[in-house]
């Protein structure tokens, strides 16, 4: 790979003073080394994609274990019975499981995350902000296995007794803990977006006689809308990809959910629960990679959306 093309005008063009001399050979070597480091993340992305799709392919082509599974069955069947003598590999119930907990959790987390972001950026005094912001960061750093554990040991029995349910491990409980994970993400990214609105605009609004909430709702929020949507989408991506919380709390039943109190088996928890128990190279193994590929594509779509929204937002401000 060659160095990035230099876009500065040539040395002899008028009015140009070059602070940096042309790089020597050794200097170019150093630069190339750093470029290699920088491409490593992109390279890992591609490697992950290649390995996922390669291993997933084994499900759809015929092999030692008979004819391949049809795409239609994989995407549209609700039956996920990978270990039966006559196995079926439908992913729909698992996808619906993932989407249900993600959706409910984001409905819970968005008002609180944005509210917290508004509080941090526009309501709290500097002293409160100085310790609340790190506190939010700490909330985000609680390991997911601990949240899952609390959901399983404390909230599930409570929910089961109070609401008189067959099980406390269900969509609502999982969504609650996913929301606890997504809220700090939304809050701190949202705070960045809201704080980026220029002080002059805010002052202008106050000078016109607007109250604090009128200023927030009609000036600050509209101006930072794409930044806020980025925050919510990234929170959504985090909830969709979260594994251990749903593995411990969502109940694990591979069925399409009909209510908030049904147990579900999201994609991520299926992967984590079954990958340890399947033989490497078996059809089940390939099916799990196919689920991984579906999950990867879903989260990638959210991330790309967030990336472009964020770029638009940066260009505007």
């Amino acid at each position: 790979m060659k160095d990035a093309p230099e876009k500065t005008p040539p040395l002899d063009s008028p009015g140009i003073i070059r602070l940096q001399p042309k790089l020597s050979r050794a200097e170019r070597g150093v630069k190339f080394f750093f470029l290699l480091c920088a491409v490593s993340a992109l390279g890992s992305m591609f490697l992950i994609m290649i390995f996922l799709f390669m291993e997933a392919g084994g499900l759809f082509f015929s092999g030692d274990e008979g004819a391949g599974v049809g795409l239609k069955e994989f995407f549209l069947s609700l039956d996920w019975y990978p270990t039966y003598p006559d196995p079926s590999f439908g992913s729909l119930a698992l996808v619906l499981g993932s989407l249900s907990v993600t959706l409910v959790s984001i409905l819970l987390a968005t008002p609180f995350g944005i509210g917290l972001a508004i509080y941090l950026s526009s309501v709290a005094g500097p002293r409160v902000r100085e310790w609340l912001k790190p506190a939010v960061e700490l909330l985000a750093s609680i390991p997911s296995v601990i949240l899952g554990f609390v959901g399983m040991v404390a909230v599930a029995p409570f929910m089961q007794n109070v609401l008189n349910l067959p099980t406390g491990l269900n969509v609502l409980n999982a969504s609650l803990f996913l929301a606890i994970m997504a809220t700090p993400t939304i809050a701190s990214l949202g705070d960045d977006a809201l704080s980026a609105v220029s002080q002059a605009v805010t002052d202008g609004s106050y000078a016109l006689g607007a109250t604090r909430w009128e200023t927030i709702s009609r000036v600050i929020l509209p101006a930072s809308l794409s930044g806020l949507s980025t925050a919510v989408i990234l929170g959504l991506g985090r909830a969709l990809g979260e594994t251990i919380v749903v593995l411990m709390v969502a109940g694990g039943a591979a069925q399409a959910p009909h209510s908030l109190f049904d147990p579900v088996r999201p994609l991520t928890s299926t992967l984590a629960a079954e990958m340890g128990e399947t033989a490497i190279g078996s059809r089940h193994y390939h099916a799990l990679f196919a689920l991984g590929a579906v999950l990867f594509v879903l989260t990638l779509a959210f991330n790309l959306l967030a990336f472009y929204l964020a770029r638009r937002w940066r260009e505007k401000s």
Binding site: S44, M45, I48, F51, L234
Partner: peptide
Amino acid sequence: NLAGVPSVVFGLF
């Protein structure tokens, strides 16, 4: 995008 890849997918990889 690497930051957004689910942790279980890293496990598979």
